[in-house]
Amino acid sequence: RDTFAQQIEAQGKVPRQVSTTEVVPAGAEIAPHLALRPDQSVGVRRRVMYANDEPLQLGDSYYPLDIVDGSKIMDPADVVEGTDQVLEDLGHIPTRYEDEITWRMPTAEESAKLRLAPGVPAGRLARTSFDQHDRPIEVYVVILPGDRHVLLYDVSAE
């Protein structure tokens, strides 16, 4: 099971995702994370993720198209084994991540999709995944309603 489903099931809730996929230009925001030009195409997998039918988060994953074109990642069906496993099967083993976390007010579209009450801020986590050759292979941008999430990090002092 993918990580989201495992975490939601561990809370005794029923996970569900609604996914779409498309090919788009990387754009000014995503391109630097993937070491691409803004006009280069990327595959994007967009998800609305639910717990017991309550929208919990929005997650858009951007991938270099030369890696994911024709793979399960570009099929909107659930990827039961998880996208990290698919990337590994494609020869790109995720070995490290870089997180960028910001908080802001949500856009009107985000508020509607997440059914947010007025005044609820949203966290934005942009996680860049790197493979065994230190190539950036995914940028996962997740929008987290501020009234539904706690970010907890365990960091070694070594």
Score class of each variant (00 low, 15 high):
R1I: 09
D2Y: 03
T3P: 00
E9Y: 11
E9I: 08
Q11S: 06
Q11V: 01
G12N: 13
G12Q: 12
K13Y: 14
P15T: 06
P15V: 07
R16E: 11
Q17T: 09
S19C: 11
S19Q: 09
S19W: 07
T20N: 11
T21E: 05
V23E: 13
V24E: 12
G27D: 15
G27K: 11
A28F: 14
A28L: 14
E29T: 12
A31S: 13
P32H: 12
H33A: 08
H33G: 02
L34G: 04
L36E: 13
R37S: 14
P38Q: 12
P38K: 14
P38C: 13
D39L: 13
V42T: 07
G43Y: 08
R45N: 04
R47F: 07
R47T: 07
V48L: 10
V48H: 03
M49D: 03
M49W: 05
Y50P: 09
A51F: 13
A51S: 12
N52I: 09
D53T: 08
P55A: 01
L56M: 12
L56K: 01
G59S: 14
G59T: 10
G59C: 13
D60R: 05
S61K: 05
S61I: 00
Y63N: 01
Y63S: 01
Y63D: 01
L65D: 05
L65Q: 05
I67S: 02
I67E: 01
D69T: 05
D69V: 05
D69M: 07
G70V: 04
G70N: 04
I73H: 03
I73N: 02
I73G: 01
I73C: 02
M74F: 06
M74R: 02
D75T: 04
P76Y: 03
A77G: 10
V80Y: 11
V80P: 00
V80A: 10
V80L: 11
G82S: 07
T83K: 01
D84F: 11
D84L: 04
L87T: 01
L87Y: 10
D89T: 02
L90C: 03
G91R: 04
H92P: 05
H92Q: 08
I93V: 10
P94G: 01
P94V: 07
E100C: 00
T102S: 15
T102C: 06
R104S: 15
T107A: 09
T107H: 14
A108H: 15
E109G: 06
E109R: 15
E110A: 09
S111I: 08
S111C: 08
R115A: 13
L116E: 08
L116H: 12
L116C: 06
A117H: 13
P121C: 09
A126I: 10
R127W: 06
T128R: 01
T128L: 00
T128H: 01
S129H: 02
Q132N: 13
Q132V: 04
H133V: 07
D134R: 10
R135C: 03
R135V: 09
P136W: 10
E138N: 08
Y140R: 05
Y140E: 05
Y140V: 07
I143V: 15
I143K: 04
L144Q: 09
P145W: 13
P145R: 10
G146W: 13
H149G: 00
V150C: 01
L152F: 12
D154G: 00
D154K: 08
D154V: 06
V155R: 11
S156N: 10
S156L: 06
S156F: 07
E158V: 07
